[in-house]
């Protein structure tokens, strides 16, 4: 643990050292930390093979790598976004074996043999998925950062309703859930949009579902 004095010292080091003497700047914190840290050894890795957007991929990863980081940093599929990195915002939503999950809260090495679909796998600018098309038509975004997660989630939501998965607002657990705005709003609650494009997002999904709004 750093005491306030040590913090003060390293902070002053930064101020005094400035840009000209990087060594001076870094010396204090490293010196403090080194005493407690054993000599560095490379972190454990593991191999994983899975299918991403129809293509077989094999990676050897630091075991700590989340599926999200594997997609973005190793496979350079940067459509999937990192928002909170704690499963609270839904920006990282991808579809794994037909189910939407938060890719930030799962380890890549746990997905051996699975089929992963990201926003890039749903459609391309020339050949958009119906849900992507509907988001454009209905202006279902503003800044666009949450949009890949919203779209992956929306595609999976319609499948969930079709499969009879109940929700918090399903009135009769004995009946098949319906595609209604109320159902969609509840089911999309794991995807936060800070710009507040929610009503247009719901319009886009109801459009794809063929439901009159």
């Amino acid at each position: 643990m750093q005491t306030p004095e040590e913090y003060e010292l390293s902070r002053r080091g930064v101020l005094v050292g400035g840009a000209a003497s990087v060594a001076t700047v870094t010396m204090v914190p490293i010196g403090t930390a080194a005493a407690a840290t054993p000599p560095a050894k490379s972190p454990p890795t593991a191999k994983v093979a899975f299918e991403v957007n129809g293509t077989a991929r094999e990676l050897e990863l630091d075991t700590r790598t989340s599926l999200l980081d594997a997609l973005r940093e190793h496979l350079h599929l940067t459509g999937t976004k990192k928002g909170c990195d704690h499963g609270q915002c839904g920006a990282c939503t991808v579809i794994v074996d037909g189910r939407r999950i938060n890719s930030c809260l799962t380890l890549a090495v746990m997905h051996e043999g699975e089929k992963i679909t990201t926003i890039e796998g749903l459609g391309t600018p020339d050949k958009m998925h119906a849900m992507q098309d509907a988001f454009v038509t209905h202006d279902g975004y503003q800044c666009g950062y949450c949009t890949p997660g919203q779209i992956c989630s929306a595609v999976a939501v319609l499948d969930e309703i079709k499969a009879g998965v109940p929700s918090h607002v399903t009135a009769d657990l004995g009946a098949a859930p319906a595609v209604t705005k109320v159902e969609l709003r509840e089911r999309m609650s794991g995807n936060i949009c800070r710009c507040g494009a929610y009503s247009n997002i719901i319009d886009a999904i109801t459009d794809v579902a063929g439901v009159k709004a």
């Binding site: 499963g87 839904g90 189910r99 938060n102 809260l105 399903t170 004995g174």
Partner: peptide, 21 residues
């Protein structure tokens, strides 16, 4: 059908993405 309380509690929790995992 028989344990509706359990379904109701589950669908009141977390998000669809988290419940899938």
């Amino acid at each position: 059908r028989d344990y509706g309380l359990l379904t109701r509690a589950l669908v009141a929790s977390a998000s669809g993405q988290l419940r899938n995992k």
